[in-house]
Write a protein that binds this DNA or RNA. Structure first.
Lengths: 209, 209, 209, 209
DNA sequence: GAGTAAGCGAGACGGTACGTCGCGTCTTCGT
DNA sequence: ACGAAGACGCGACGTACCGTCTCGCTTACTC
């Protein structure tokens, strides 16, 4: 059965207030600008209360970002080219949100760092890392299913490894956001999908004789 | 001509000693385990001397990694498939070095974090970010030239955007290392290149009707 | 009524431990030998805790000395000559304690410096200066009262300014300790009082005709 | 004979420039505001050059103040009351110069600290201490001679210890400047001398029965 | 409705590094 | 030698945040 409740129950409104305050700080001042001390003050909450829910600043930050990103689900229209473009664009949108949210204007490097710090957080704490990988696996599983169905319809090569294709799409986005700083948008998503599906090799001539 | 020398010249052996000490710490204990205080002590150097050369722990860390990675140049054998595989593998090797160096065994998450922290460092300090992007641009320029030559030889599509192809190759590697934690090796590099060149679409039938 | 207690109360034993450790260092190695870092270590206390109570090394040093000097009160026997000698001697004793405490032997210059550094501390920080002057004013007020009573008994001149007399007594002591390095003891105190009371002028002849 | 000169002779104009720069800093920002680094820069002189002349910041500071104070000599008019008042006032003037020089307005505590820091400097370095005491002894010797002559003229008690009288005069001044912060001026000097010469005791009645 | 177990606000505490400051020494070149 | 320039070692400073703790008070559920 349910564990009988003992003692005063947690005030659920607090989570909301804290996450909002933390999100503000995180997006405005980057990861370093997110200090537990200030979050507590802004949320009108004691530090103790914070630590009771998120054992670490890293955990809090992850929760903030998870809270920001609404679940994007995958649509299957039968047109794999379009479905993959949609999927890719959704990832791009989420990344862009983290990248530029709350920024005055121009290229916002700071928040690009937020993504990196989250990755680092995953490396610092096993549980965060596991959770992150689990989430990615879950998301990927849906995309893999999409690809499988297209393959069964004969739209994709029979020997294609779906994960490799996904690596190429999502990877390119992360690479741009994290490393080169180049922009990612709908157009880039489509270009990516086109290149990935049609191949870079020239098929007019014998690609491999 | 040469600027006349003013004052006592910097002791060049110090850079060497410091970078070595820092590299040891960074690879052994991850980014958090890299403390200026201890680097100074191990290198037998005053903390002020460190700060005179690297204004920040982030700057030092970047310098360390730059120092670790020997310049990988690109070879052009005429076989684009092989050249790209080599190039991709070189990146993978560099990433793996950061990932697992000094780790006892098994999957080493900690050092995956090093890459992430370096990215974050680039986001925290404009100068580091600029320098990083500049370096990537330089490396990419060589690869772009390689691709252009192959295209002129008729091996690649005329309408191919070389940068997109490179994003797909390098991006997939970074994605695996940073996000999913999957392994990257020679085999993966080849698989990546094959998928990218030949395309995911099934060409036996009409790819786009 | 009493302010309701908020938060964890300060651990009062810490003050004791810190002041003891600081006193040891101060008396043994002089002002320069008093380092917050080492006090913290010896007292088994975090540096932050120290700074929470004494915002500055100067503040700590003042607190240490204040803690060393037990309140010397003034006795009124009716014999002003004796009372002033006692008072003067008490000051001398306190100064000597600072001067020679913990010194191996011989003329101890170092600790003469402690007095000077405390004065300098009062000049560096307004709050310390104010507090110091306040304390001296309080002590002087008692002595002034003593003098007033003696004057009412007809033992002192009617037109005497008590503060001037006190300046002459205490000042001579500080002057010796700080400037000339000459010794101050009971005998000197009595000599001082005698000279001050009886005057330097020769009264056998008309001092001012 | 004189040691034959070897090498380039010292540039004598440098002392002047340095002392002026140092005096500015010392009077404007107090002892802590006197930094060798900045003195060197302002004087347009290398730090090395500074250290070749004054082995320590303390030594420099002492030199600065010594340079500021022009030698006050003692005048003997035959009127001991007036001579002592003059002497006392001269000391007061010198102290006031250190106390208020360069201050915007109001009571300037900072520079009161300069005096204290000089005393502390004397405690930190034996040679400074010795030199300081020597100077005071020299000055006092002149005053003692003055007093002796007055005593021989029958103006002062035969059993008077001249040094005690001087302690009372000079001490009171230093005490006010350093400790209580009270003002010292011509009027106070006269009051001091009067009290010291005539005595605090009431001579109308039997002072000591 | 008295007990009691937990939540909560507040703030002290230990700890770890950080980056800074100033001193006094040294090394190099040029005068 | 002296002088300018500036690197270097050293020692401490005061700060910032983290995450833990100890108070007193509040809010439920339970008996």
């Amino acid at each position: 059965m349910n564990q009988a409740q003992r003692g005063r129950p947690r005030d659920t409104r607090i989570d909301e207030r804290v996450l909002r305050a933390a999100a503000t700080l995180l997006l405005r001042h980057g990861y370093a600008g997110l200090s537990i001390e200030e979050v507590a003050e802004r949320a009108g909450v004691a530090k103790t209360t914070l630590y009771r829910r998120w054992p670490t600043k890293d955990h809090l930050a992850v929760a903030v970002v998870a809270h920001l990103q609404d679940e994007d689900d995958i649509t299957d229209t039968g047109d794999i080219r379009r479905d993959l473009s949609d999927y890719t664009e959704k990832i791009a949108t989420a990344l862009n949100r983290l990248r530029s949210a709350g920024r005055p204007a121009g290229q916002d490097n700071r928040s690009a760092g937020v993504v990196a710090e989250l990755v680092a957080a995953g490396a610092r704490h096993d549980d965060i890392g596991r959770m992150g990988r689990h989430n990615y696996a879950r998301r990927n599983a849906l995309a893999v299913a999409l690809i499988e169905r297209a393959r069964e319809r004969g739209q994709l090569r029979a020997d294609l490894d779906p994960l490799v294709l996904l690596d190429q799409l999502a990877g390119a986005l992360y690479y741009r956001v994290l490393i080169t700083g180049a922009p990612v948008d709908r157009h880039y998503a489509e270009q990516l999908v086109a290149t990935a599906l049609d191949g870079a090799a020239n098929r007019k001539e014998a690609p491999r004789p």
